[in-house]
Design a protein around this nucleic acid. Structure first.
Lengths: 193, 193
DNA sequence: GTCTATAAGATGATAGAC
DNA sequence: GTCTATCATCTTATAGAC
């Protein structure tokens, strides 16, 4: 494993725990086991580091969504799996979605980073929208508003729940959202089995 | 208007725009029109300032909710008004809910501040839960999960939407959430008029 | 690639005059 | 209450040896 990767791993963990602004090159270097000059060798400025962090995070979610689509054909199964993966990722209420952190600090980040954050939201919402539409086609979901609108709402609820989960030290929140959303999408349906 | 109040006003605006960590006593003092030593006179440490900010913000929301309950008797009307006030408060996609910011930086805030953040979530969620229950009683809402669970989901969606609103420079997100939530709560209902 | 050393500036905070 | 002056510390970042 390369030093650059180890730096990104530690930086991601620190950022998710404390926020980007609270991560210093000194702390980061100490935890990686190198000197801060070495961090600068791999990531010249803090903006470079933050951007690399955001890109990697977004791509990881892209992979997760692709895997879900490959393994699961039903829209309901896909949504359930998405929620389950997120719940597992944030089960320890000590860290928060990296992009939620960046979005909160969006007033003081670089333009390139802001684009990356925006893309993260757009990608996830588009996938959710497609999945909802598929669910309607498969006659398992009933939407109360158009798919795009519902998708935005669901993803907002997910991000908000991850944030609240740590703030309230209550790891059940993501499951609450998952339960509520799924029940709402299936409202009016009668169980077959 | 006292200096302390002016400091809080400016600090709140700066914090909502840039994040708490990115607000310095120097910038704050400059914008208020005093020297940083004066800020320290009113708020000895940065923790004191942050705590005062959070308490004031929470109390303001308390007042808003009380006003809504006083003016409006129907649960649906109350919920609509709540969403409308929030949408108006965050219509300029330049600022974010103060508590969302604090929640994102929760890994590096004082214990007292963390309690305040937690209380903000709890208060709003409890009010939402009561309002949902009232709506069921008034036969205007149908819940797909129990009131507490739905309330947590709705508030998570609200906080997430405010965050996404700025990150995506898309002020329609809070309205999306409001539309989707209200439609979902009234699903299966037939309009009377 | 990693280190030592250091620059140049910002930060929270305090002492003491007015 | 507000100021000037100052402190110790931390910050990002760079130059140059190994």
């Amino acid at each position: 494993m390369s030093t650059a990767d180890r730096i990104l791993d530690v930086a991601e963990a620190l950022c998710q725990r404390r926020g980007l602004e609270a991560v210093s090159f000194r702390d980061l270097a100490a935890e990686v086991g190198v000197k801060s000059a070495s961090i600068h060798y791999h990531f010249p400025s803090k903006s470079d580091l933050a951007l690399a962090l955001a890109i990697r995070y977004r791509q990881r979610f892209e992979t997760v969504r692709s895997e879900i689509d490959r393994k699961e054909q039903s829209a309901e199964g896909r949504l359930k799996r998405f929620f389950a993966i997120l719940a597992d990722l944030y089960k320890e209420p000590n860290k928060v979605c990296l992009v939620a952190i960046l979005a909160a600090e969006a007033g003081s980040i670089s333009p390139e980073l802001a684009i990356e954050v925006r893309k993260f939201f757009a990608d996830n919402e588009q996938w959710l929208s497609s999945t909802l539409t598929l669910g309607v086609k498969q006659k398992t979901f009933t939407l109360s508003t158009e798919a795009d609108c519902t998708a935005k709402t669901i993803f907002a609820a997910v991000e908000g729940a991850i944030l609240a989960s740590r703030a309230c030290a209550d790891s059940s929140r993501l499951r609450s959202v998952a339960d509520c959303v799924l029940a709402s999408l299936k409202q009016g349906k009668v169980a077959i089995g």
